[in-house]
């Protein structure tokens, strides 16, 4: 925590609070989709639930951003009354670890589209493995489980990786990120 600036922590925490609300708002969407397609309904939009990791890490670029933001978001979700309760906290931490692992593998140096997509994918992998044991996917048919897994991977890559980057870049254009790693990078590019 030493090399984090206070403003980075507050911004990360605000992002987590915003997305905790977004996450909650997408639960009923997931429920409707589940009604249509079965458990795979959630996997279609699962990437949404990784997005804060990617945005926070992409903007702040410090080790721990992906993990902490997702954990805080999960905590806020629980405090606001998510049905999964304390289990959600653990799921959040595991998703965060997944996203974080991708940035760790690149040595926290590369923050291009590829890395962000990879990060969304890793979050999907971690969360699926956890879900397999925790929510009893094993009770479902094998082919169906595989389909769920692939769906979640794609969702993580697109909804978290690609959409997360697009949203952060749109934010950077407003100039409010000038004091953060992403804003500084844009400025350097602009000057060059």
């Amino acid at each position: 925590m030493k090399n984090w600036k206070l403003k980075e922590i507050v911004v990360m925490s605000v992002l987590s609070v915003v997305f905790a609300v977004v996450y909650l708002a997408f639960l009923p969407v997931g429920k409707v989709l589940t009604g249509f397609f079965g458990p795979i309904g959630y996997d279609l939009i699962f990437g949404i639930w990784f997005i804060v990791s990617i945005i926070a890490a992409y903007i702040i670029r410090k080790p721990g951003a992906a993990f902490l933001s997702e954990t805080i978001a999960a905590t806020v979700e629980v405090l606001l009354g998510n049905a999964a309760g304390p289990m959600l906290l653990i799921s959040g931490m595991i998703q965060g670890l997944g996203a974080e692992s991708a940035f760790a593998m690149t040595g926290y140096r590369r923050y291009n589209l590829g890395t962000l997509m990879f990060s969304g994918m890793m979050a999907a992998v971690f969360s699926f493995v956890w879900g397999y044991f925790q929510s009893g996917y094993a009770a479902l048919a094998g082919g169906y489980v595989l389909l769920m897994f692939v769906t979640r991977l794609v969702s993580g890559v697109i909804l978290a990786g690609v959409a997360g980057k697009a949203l952060s870049d749109a934010l950077a254009k407003t100039g409010v990120l000038s004091g953060f790693a992403l804003g500084k990078e844009k400025r350097k590019k602009h000057a060059a």
């Binding site: 600036k5 206070l6 403003k7 922590i9 507050v10 911004v11 925490s13 605000v14 992002l15 915003v18 949203l167 749109a170 934010l171 407003t174 409010v176 990120l177 004091g179």
Partner: peptide
């Protein structure tokens, strides 16, 4: 975008 931009600016001021 406006929601997050406003929130980030305020977060910075709070810090």
């Amino acid at each position: 975008v406006p929601l997050l931009a406003g929130a980030i600016r305020k977060a910075e001021r709070t810090a």
